[in-house]
Structure formats: C-alpha cells, structure tokens
C-alpha cells in the first residue's frame, strides 16, 4: 500500500510503498523506525506535521554530524552559490543542445560581445528579473572558452559582500587569487582558486539590489 512517511526527527517527507520503505531517512540518516506513516492521498498534503528542529547555537562549525542548517542573516547574500558557468567552443551548438535537451531558456547577457556572447540560462521557473522563482536550483552561464584567459575553467559563482575582503580570507585559508576585480556585463567579479585548486568566480552583490527580491531573503 502506498503511504506517505514523515521522518519524526527532521520532517522529511517520503512517498513509498509500505513494502519498500527506505531503511534510512535521506534527510537526516536516522533509521526508518522513526518514520510516521499515513495513507497517501490524492491531494498530496500531509496530515502529519512535525515541527522542524531548531538550529543549535554555538556548535562547532567543523563538526559534520547531522544537524539543522544554521540560520543565515538577512541583509546579505554573502557566500551563496549562485550560478554555474559552462564553457563552450560553439555558441550555437551549445545553445541548441541545452534548449532542446534540457528545456532551458537562453538569452545573451545584456551588453555582451556578440562575437563571444556570454549566454545566460534559465533552467526552470523564474521571476521577471530572471532569477529562479522556486528554491534550490540555479541559473547559469554558457561562456566562450576563448574568453577564459585564466585557462582555469572557473565553474561556479559565489556571491559575496566585498570582493577584496573575501580574497583576503580565501588566501588565509589556502586559496589563491587568479584574477583581481574586473567588470563584465555590468557586474563585478574576481577569480580565485579554492584550497584544492578549483577555480571559481566571486561576484560582488550589485548596488541595485533592493533586498526585497525573493532571492535576497535570509532566514
């Protein structure tokens, strides 16, 4: 019989046949004896509600045991992983492939060089400002390989409050500056390597952010 299970420890919902229940919660790794069961209903709404646990204060940030993720403050987007960056050798081919195979919506970034366009990709539902409307997925870029003068293929973008302060911290913890602050399509970036040699972009929060955008919320 199809049932809706709710993990009593973390609230994670699981739809499964009662003969095929996962042995562990995919959210918090506790065993299935902690699951509360109810019949699966067509409305897809749970009758069982579990109050989510509160984040612990003053926990060791290096401890990787299961816990509720900490609260992130309002008024900053510092540290959020915001975009992916794929490189292309043929813009038309890359655009056609991702539009047809993955249903993306792809536009040239505003002010981009038409010879080597930086293509911006919506990968799912979005708002009028071309930011995702739904949590837990990101938009990203297709970028001409020829425009990567670092040769490091930086692959993702982390938003920060201040580029230079972040570079200082990154260097303190084993990172390395690859390219200092530069402007592309109206946004300020830098490129660094993390402590493991993976290249990434730092993107400074634009001054145009109003903090009312859905993607600017804290909590």
């Amino acid at each position: 019989m199809l049932k809706l299970y709710t993990c009593y420890k973390c609230g994670f919902p699981i739809k499964a046949d009662d003969r095929d229940v996962p042995p562990r919660c995919p959210g918090c790794n506790c065993s299935s004896e902690w699951f509360l069961a109810e019949p699966y209903n067509e409305q897809e709404k749970r009758r069982i509600h579990v109050d989510p646990p509160e984040p612990e204060e003053n926990r060791d940030p290096m401890n990787i045991d299961y816990h509720v993720a900490k609260k992130f403050p309002y008024g900053t987007r510092n540290g959020r992983l915001r975009r992916f960056v794929f490189q292309y050798s043929d813009a038309d081919r890359a655009k056609k492939n991702y539009e047809e195979l993955f249903d993306w919506d792809i536009i040239p970034s505003e002010g981009t060089d038409p010879e080597h366009p930086l293509l911006y990709c919506a990968t799912g539902p979005g708002n009028a400002n071309w930011e995702p409307r739904v949590p837990s997925f990101i938009y990203g870029y297709l970028k001409d390989k020829e425009t990567d003068e670092t040769g490091k293929e930086p692959f993702f973008v982390i938003e920060v409050d201040n580029i230079e302060k972040t570079i200082e911290k990154a260097e303190e913890f084993g990172g390395r500056l690859i390219k200092p602050r530069f402007t592309e399509c109206g946004n300020d970036y830098a490129i660094i390597e993390d402590s493991e040699g993976n290249a990434l972009y730092l993107w400074e929060t634009p001054s145009t952010v109003t903090w009312k955008e859905p993607e600017s919320q804290g909590g």
Binding site: P52, A69, N127, P132, P214, E215, G218, G219
Partner: peptide
C-alpha cells in the same frame, strides 16, 4: 551556502 530547509535544500530561491 545560504538559508536552508531541514532537508538542506535551499529555502529561498536563487542559490
């Protein structure tokens, strides 16, 4: 990397 649900999926859009 930002605000998250108990499942560790992001709780607000964009990251």
């Amino acid at each position: 990397t930002g605000p998250s649900q108990v499942s560790w999926e992001a709780s607000v859009p964009g990251h």
